[in-house]
């Protein structure tokens, strides 16, 4: 082991400071008793109270959760299939299709899906957002599953087959349990990506389908009250809970990822 390098630790510490200082400020200013929220005035809980009476915000949060749940579910199934296929066969088209959406800037997927939905005469709304989210989530699940599968011993399945197990039983009792950490890691990633997505949702959202990030964007743009801070603080708290919960339940997700 090398000696601890002071310079290295100090510079890394500064980067951590850079990462966390802004978030601390958001949290602190959510308790600021000033509508303008430019300088510190005094402590208050009122923005949180206001938030829980803000119907638009609650509606948007609800939309976000519905979209994230449905798209994570669908993308997890499709992504798992894709990951397994990519691991077992030498395919050309599928890896290209799976990886390209990850490699493209979000805005491109947003505008091309907007064009597509309009051309096929589809009304923009929750459904169009879900279809878009599934598209960009599949790749992340597929990658996680593929990585997990490549570390799996194929002899296990072959042995079970030789012992007379049906393919379905093999899948259910051997492949699936072994793949589960990979699938869950992928699903978790898909969920956070979906609930966090702004750019693609911005282009594919329609009437009454505003999501939390869209709502935050319009609030940030108009910059009215510390309610933005309050909702941000709650969101951070929620992700913190989800992440710690997931890492407790399935520590394997966070190892080797």
């Amino acid at each position: 082991m090398q000696k601890k390098n002071v310079l290295l630790w100090v510079s890394a510490g500064l980067v951590y400071l850079f990462l966390y200082l802004p978030l601390v400020i958001v949290v602190v200013f959510s308790f600021n008793d000033s509508r303008l929220n430019a300088e510190w005035v005094g402590f208050t809980w009122k923005w949180y109270g206001k938030l829980f009476h803000n119907r638009e915000m609650l509606g948007a949060a609800m939309n976000s959760l519905i979209i994230a749940t449905v798209s994570t579910g669908t993308a997890t199934i499709l992504g798992t299939l894709a990951g397994m296929a990519m691991n077992q066969y030498r395919l050309r088209l599928l890896p290209l299709l799976v990886l390209s959406p990850i490699a493209m800037p979000d805005i491109l997927m947003g505008v091309s899906l907007l064009l597509f939905f309009i051309m096929v005469n589809m009304t923009l709304g929750l459904l169009s957002i879900m279809l878009a989210h599934i598209t960009f989530c599949i790749g992340f699940v597929a990658l996680a599953v593929q990585a997990r599968m490549s570390s799996m011993d194929p002899a296990l399945v072959e042995a079970a087959r030789d012992l007379g197990a049906s393919p379905w039983r093999c899948f259910r009792e051997i492949t699936l349990p072994l793949l589960l950490p990979g699938i869950l890691a992928g699903a978790l990633m898909a969920f956070t990506l979906s609930i966090d997505d702004f750019v693609i949702t911005f282009f594919t959202a329609g009437v009454g389908s505003s999501t939390l990030p869209l709502q935050i964007y319009s609030m940030v743009k108009i910059a009215v009250t510390p309610e933005v801070n309050a909702v941000s603080t709650l969101l951070m708290l929620l992700t913190l809970v989800v992440i710690t919960g997931a890492s407790r339940l399935y520590p394997a997700i966070f190892r080797g990822e």
Binding site: I77, L78, G79, L81, A82, M84, A85, Q88, Y89, L91, L93, L94, L97, V98, S100, P101, L108, M109, V111, S112, L113, L115, F116, M119, L131, A132, I134, T135, I138, A142
Partner: peptide, 23 residues
């Protein structure tokens, strides 16, 4: 092989490749 690869491929062809081509 097709059971595994067709559903994701079909989805991505419709919602990724087709929109890109339309663009």
């Amino acid at each position: 092989k097709y059971l595994l690869s067709l559903p994701p491929m079909a989805y991505l062809l419709i919602f990724f490749a087709a929109p890109t081509f339309l663009m």
